[in-house]
């Protein structure tokens, strides 16, 4: 019997060609996978940021589902408002997605998100993490990793790069009592879609943390975009896991974590780092990974 080649993710597309993303951008992939998982009855609300620009310019746009644009800090509130409107009008079987960037979530949008979790708003909140304010020109956000160059953490004489750790947004939301949280990576589409399918019909606030490379912001060759994103997980820098009602579990086992150097050295934003700094980052990543494993152990006992 001949093996007929199969699609490993759904065939349906809800993203249109001709969008304005840079070559090699991870965001359109995240949009593709999200909508493949959620389907036609999905409304996105997108604040200021790359997400809004990628969808193109009026009178056109690049999705086949409704989109509401909003101000930077109010994604979770607008999303919950849409859900509230649907509820009072009896609109059912619809997914309401808040689609914000990392800055729009962990910095300026944190207050509204926290309140939505507090209300257990029935929304899917997707944080598209490209690790800086990319749309405004690569400025440091609360999600920029240690060691990274950005335009507001420039490098001069081997100093000046970002020295503050990435905000632990998942832990904040777990402490906040979120019912479902998961990390996904555009380099692992099947896992990405599986997480959204798992989350979509849970009642309450679902938080999806997406790692998506930004080719100009990370200073990477566009063709290396997926390779770099994959390394983020393979090195343990961006482990894939989920948290269901406070219980942590790995969604992708990494047998032998690759050295962080492999990930860092593919990216111009880290190229200034010397041996000592790389070793330090390796140490931090090892510690964070151990912390994650401990949380998995502790929450499953």
């Amino acid at each position: 019997m001949v093996n007929i080649p199969k699609f490993t993710i759904p065939k349906e597309e809800y993203v249109c060609k001709g969008h304005s993303a840079c070559p090699g951008c991870g965001t359109p992939l995240a949009l593709r996978y999200t909508l493949k998982a959620l389907g036609k009855r999905t409304v996105l609300n997108i604040p200021a940021g790359c997400g809004g620009v990628i969808l193109g310019v009026w009178p056109s746009y690049a999705l086949k589902v409704p989109v509401v644009d909003n101000a930077f800090e109010c994604t979770a509130a607008v999303a919950d408002g849409i859900r509230a409107g649907f509820d009072v009008l009896g609109v059912e079987d619809a997914y309401v997605v808040g689609w914000a960037g990392d800055g729009g979530t962990v910095d300026i949008g944190l207050q509204a998100l926290s309140a939505a979790v507090d209300r257990n708003a029935n929304i899917i909140y997707i944080m598209l993490d490209n690790e800086a304010y990319m749309n405004t020109g690569i400025q440091k956000s609360g999600c920029t990793p240690i060691g990274a160059w950005t335009t507001t953490t420039p490098v001069a004489d081997e100093k000046g790069w970002n020295t503050s750790p990435k905000k632990r947004i998942m832990e904040m939301l777990v402490a906040n009592g979120i019912v479902y949280g998961a990390t996904v990576n555009v380099a692992f589409p099947e896992d990405f879609i599986a997480r959204l399918r798992e989350a979509k019909d849970i009642k309450g606030t679902k938080f999806i943390h997406v790692l998506a490379p930004c080719t100009p912001g990370w200073r990477i060759d566009p063709k290396k975009s997926i390779e770099v994103a994959r390394l983020a997980t393979q090195t343990g820098i961006f482990p894939l896991y989920k948290v269901e009602n406070g219980r942590y579990s790995l969604t992708k086992e990494i047998k032998n974590r690759k050295p962080v150097r492999e990930y860092l050295m593919l990216q111009g934003r880290f190229r200034h780092l010397k041996e000592e700094a790389i070793n330090q980052i390796q140490k931090i990543v090892d510690e964070e990974y151990a912390r994650l494993l401990k949380k998995i152990k502790d929450t499953n006992e």
Binding site: N45, A71, A77, V78, R83
Partner: peptide, 15 residues
């Protein structure tokens, strides 16, 4: 800020 944001969302839904 969130009150007004929420209402904008709800109004878009038709409420």
């Amino acid at each position: 800020h969130s009150a007004m944001s929420m209402l904008i969302g709800a109004s878009y839904a038709g409420a």
